[in-house]
Nucleic acid binder design. Structure first.
Lengths: 155, 155
DNA sequence: ATACTATATTGGACGAAGTCTAAGTCAAGA
DNA sequence: TCTTGACTTAGACTTCGTCCAATATAGTAT
């Protein structure tokens, strides 16, 4: 973590209390927080920190390659501190929880030359969706619906 | 397209002018529109159609499996009418263009049992990122910058 | 053809997520 | 210590999407 702060200082970052706290929050957990979650935890240590600073700092860390932005569905972006080890994500379509996973093959090899349309393909993001044990259990209790949820609003 | 409307009627859909127009818009193009783009095009044919109806109808079509919702970045969701042929997406990180692509392997098989953490994995989404020929050419002309741009806001 | 009713539509209020701005603050170097 | 440009802040604003009560209407029964 000190590594992170040192790297940032080396790149000309001004080290403010806000940035330090945000770095600490990201470092402490292996969870992928949303910006609001980062803010909530930062506030515990530095009550006057603003949402804008959290957004600014997260954006800068992404631009510097220190963290990765993950957009799974239409919900809030999540920030993945584990940017230095390539991995994919497994997301619960019930509650949105996200886990890092390692896969056994390079997905880029599954894309044949004839399907590249002249693109220079540099990156593949694989996201797995499913139900986490908790949500699966909650569903089993709630009764045997199809599980896809919310086919129609109830007006 | 009549197929689509027929399928929907068979499933008990009430066929309204609004739904017909939305289906027509989706059918006409191979582009993946946002909800607002769908609305804009629907308004041309049925000026009084509301945003709410577009959102409702798109949501229902997704729930019925007739179209697919695609979220690439944190922006508006896009709707992919090509839901009956499984495919993945190739996105240009320069201009955002998106193409449908077919891959040769089932990505779910690349996720070992030990990496599933008790989840019931039902779906895998692969998104390839790269440069389309146009953007690559533009870069070559513009000179050798890193191209990732915008490291810091200029206050 | 008419009436009926569950379902669909509408506009607008509301909410979540994120961006922007102008004014004030402060870390780091001279 | 002084200076200054980078950083932070509050809050207005934008975008995307959802929800609601009131109204309209497709499809069916009569």
């Amino acid at each position: 973590m000190d590594d992170l702060l040192q790297r940032l200082r080396d790149r000309g970052w001004r080290l403010t209390a806000q940035r330090r706290v945000i770095a600490e929050v990201l470092d402490g957990e292996h969870i992928h927080f949303t910006a609001d979650e980062v803010h909530a935890r930062a506030v515990e240590r530095l009550p006057e920190i603003s949402r804008a600073s959290v957004y600014n700092t997260l954006g800068e860390l992404v631009a510097l390659g220190e963290i990765t932005e993950v957009t799974t569905d239409g919900r809030a972006k999540r920030y993945d501190p584990n940017a230095h080890h390539p991995h994919q994500h497994l997301v619960c379509s019930g509650c949105g929880t996200m886990r890092d996973v390692q896969i056994t093959e390079d997905p880029i090899r599954a894309l044949p030359e004839g399907e590249r349309f002249g693109f220079t393909v540099s990156n593949a993001v694989v996201t797995y969706y499913g139900r986490c044990p908790d949500c699966a259990a909650a569903e089993a209790v709630a009764g045997g619906g199809t599980g896809s949820g919310q086919a129609r609003r109830t007006a």
